[in-house]
Amino acid sequence: MPPAKPFKIPESVLVVIHTPDLQVLLIERADHPGYWQSVTGSKDSVDEPAAETARREVLEETGFDITALGATLRDWELANVYDIYPHWRHRYAPGVTRNTEHVFGLQLPAALTPTLAPREHLSWMWLPWHEAADRCFSPSNAEAVLQLPRFSSHSTTCRS
Rank of each mutant, 00 (worst) to 15 (best):
T67P: 10
P49S: 06
Y82H: 15
S12D: 14
V13Y: 03
V46G: 10
H90C: 03
T40R: 12
L26N: 03
S38N: 15
T97M: 01
A51M: 01
A71K: 02
Y85N: 11
S38P: 15
A54W: 01
T19L: 09
N80T: 02
R29K: 10
E57C: 05
R89I: 04
V16M: 09
E48K: 11
D21G: 00
L73M: 11
L69P: 10
Q37H: 06
S38C: 15
G41P: 08
L59P: 02
T72K: 11
V39S: 09
I27C: 01
S45I: 05
H18K: 06
R56F: 12
Y35Q: 12
A71I: 10
Y92N: 05
G95C: 06
T62A: 08
A79L: 10
E60Q: 14
V39M: 09
R74Q: 14
V58D: 07
R89L: 14
I84G: 09
P94Q: 08
E57K: 07
A50Q: 05
L73R: 01
P49I: 04
S12R: 03
A30E: 06
A71Y: 03
V16F: 00
W88Y: 12
E52S: 10
D31H: 06
G70Q: 07
P94L: 02
V24W: 01
A93G: 05
